[in-house]
C-alpha cells in the first residue's frame, strides 16, 4: 500500500501541470474510484482539513497518505509528489538564465495554463459533487464560496469558517 501510494503520486508528479490542485481530480480517481482506499466523504473532508491549515496546497496529498497508511504513507505520498518534480526543477533551475524569455517557454506556458485551469475546475466540481452527496443544500455553500473567492480578494479562510458555522447550525 505504501509503495502503491508512492507510485501513484510519483506518476502524477510529473504530469501535474500548473500545480497540485490541478491533479485533484486524478487523485480522487485513483484513491477513491480505482483503489477504494478512501471514501468520498473522507476524501472531501481531508482535503478541506488541508485547506484550513497553512502551507502549500500540495500537502493535501500528505494527509491522504497519512490517513491511508499512517506515517509511512505520509512519507511515501509526499516523497512521491515532490521528488520527481523537485528533481526536474533542480536541473532546469541550472538552465534558468539561458531559458528566460525563450519563445518556446512562453508557448509551453501559454498552452498549458488553460489546461491547468480546466483541470482545477474539474477537481473543484468533483469535490462539490462529493459535498452535495450529503445534501443538495451544500451546493449553495459551494456556490457562495466560489463567488467569494472569484469576486473578492479577502482570505478564503472566511468561507471555510462560514461553512463550519453553517455545518454546526444545520447538523
Amino acid at each position: 500500500m505504501v509503495w502503491g501510494l508512492f507510485v501513484i503520486f510519483a506518476s502524477i508528479s510529473l504530469i501535474a501541470v500548473g500545480g497540485a490542485t490541478s491533479s485533484l481530480n486524478e487523485i480522487h480517481r485513483q484513491l477513491v474510484e480505482n483503489r477504494h482506499w478512501l471514501d468520498d466523504r473522507t476524501f472531501g473532508q481531508l482535503f478541506a482539513l488541508a485547506q484550513a491549515a497553512p502551507g502549500p496546497n500540495v500537502l493535501a496529498v500528505s494527509l491522504f497518505g497519512y490517513w491511508i497508511a499512517g506515517l509511512p504513507g505520509l512519507a511515501a505520498s509526499t516523497a512521491g509528489m515532490l521528488l520527481p518534480a523537485g528533481t526536474l526543477a533542480f536541473f532546469v533551475g541550472g538552465l534558468a538564465q539561458r531559458l528566460k524569455g525563450h519563445p518556446a517557454l512562453k508557448a509551453i506556458n501559454g498552452g498549458l495554463v488553460p489546461l491547468a485551469v480546466g483541470l482545477i475546475l474539474a477537481g473543484g466540481v468533483t469535490l462539490a459533487a462529493t459535498a452535495a452527496a450529503h445534501g443538495w443544500g451544500w451546493i449553495g455553500m459551494t456556490a457562495l464560496s466560489a463567488a467569494f473567492v472569484w469576486r473578492t480578494n479577502f482570505s478564503p479562510l472566511w468561507m471555510l469558517a462560514c461553512g463550519a458555522v453553517l455545518g454546526l447550525i444545520i447538523g
Binding site: 482539513l49 482545477i120 464560496s145 454546526l168
Partner: peptide, 25 residues
C-alpha cells in the same frame, strides 16, 4: 457536520480559483 460545511466551502474555493484564473487569462 462542521467538517461537511468546511468541505463544501473548500470545494467552492477550488472552483472560484479556477474561474478567477480563467477570467484573468
Amino acid at each position: 457536520a462542521l467538517m461537511q460545511g468546511i468541505a463544501a466551502a473548500a470545494a467552492g474555493m477550488v472552483i472560484g480559483t479556477a474561474i478567477k484564473m480563467g477570467s484573468r487569462l
